[in-house]
Design a protein around this nucleic acid. Structure first.
Ligand SMILES: [Mn+2]
Ligand SMILES: [Mn+2]
Ligand SMILES: [Mn+2]
Ligand SMILES: [Mn+2]
Lengths: 158, 158
DNA sequence: TATAAAATATAGCCAAGGCTAACTAGTTAG
DNA sequence: CTAACTAGTTAGCCTTGGCTATATTTTATA
């Protein structure tokens, strides 16, 4: 009964600047983000396993835990998932290996990660900040944008 | 007993190019990403509610659902969370309002979102791609990088 | 070579963020 | 003014990705 309205500035045609995107396109934006989040962690783990093998000769669960900043139990559970997904091979209590599919994913992810990182550095972002930002951004950069970043980096300095 | 080793290329000093970051710093990268993911959705909802109010005069749960590409049940649950967090006010079955805190968050998020979007456009990314990428990237861009993006956009065209 | 320590695994708990199905409240048309 | 439709809520289920505590297995050391 009593009107509880608090403000309710009416549309008045064009209140703000940029209009809202069409509903379908808008929904696609968020859907893309949700999809990226589904694979993000998987990619980071696989990429890290690949990096550990390249840099230290082997990947142990304990290294994953300390580098990820997460408990060993969390890593253990994740490794089970990676095996189920056919990305990792290992015997219990032994170090980890990437399957063919895992190696492919690791390479793809690392390449993408590097492009984003180098782009940020080329833009003028400090190295430690660039590393942090790249870790999150890499999963949300389209191929189109990635290509443009790579060109930019090539042109602008090293 | 039998050796199951598959490859195991030893460290050989410097296998790859860029060395791995120190463990603590490396962990901080992933922690930052995890933190961003905790607030991401909240920010997107609040930002969207603000945008709907600005552009259509009110924000209804149904609009949130169609724009987010998600079921009404999901939105309803989220709204309860937003209320618990003190970001949103509403009576059951009525439209949504932002609290003071909610408005502040909406403005901050929108400003950040716009900077990232305009930066991508200035870089040369097509509009529809830029919108998709910005929706995910915005949550992983540090203040430092954001400032640099803004400068870049100002210098480089519109 | 026992035994202590370190690494890995498993169990069980929790919160977030999806979903469908069933129910309830508001709004609109006849 | 009632019936039908639309909008919003609630319940219950699921997966993901954290955690702690407790086993188990390997590895190192006395
Ligand atoms: Mn990452
Ligand atoms: Mn993300
Ligand atoms: Mn946004
Ligand atoms: Mn977003």
């Amino acid at each position: 009964m009593s009107d509880y309205e608090q403000q309710n500035v009416p549309p008045s045609s064009d209140s703000g600047r940029d209009a809202l995107p069409p509903v379908t396109q808008h929904a696609r934006q968020y859907e893309t983000v949700r999809n990226a989040h589904e694979t993000e962690l998987i990619e980071d783990y696989v990429e890290l396993i690949g990096d550990l093998i390249r840099h230290q000769g082997e990947a142990r669960a304990a290294d994953l835990a300390s580098r990820m900043g997460v408990s060993q139990a969390t890593v253990s559970k994740m490794i089970r998932r990676l095996k189920e997904l056919g990305l990792v091979n290992s015997q219990p209590y032994r170090s980890l290996f990437l399957t063919e599919a895992g190696q492919t994913m690791a390479e793809t992810s690392r390449a993408r990660h590097d492009i984003v990182l180098q782009f940020l550095r080329a833009l003028g972002v400090r190295d430690s900040t660039a590393r942090i930002d790249a870790e999150g951004m890499e999963h949300h950069v389209s191929d189109e944008t990635l290509a443009i970043m790579q060109q930019f980096t090539e042109k602008n300095a090293r």
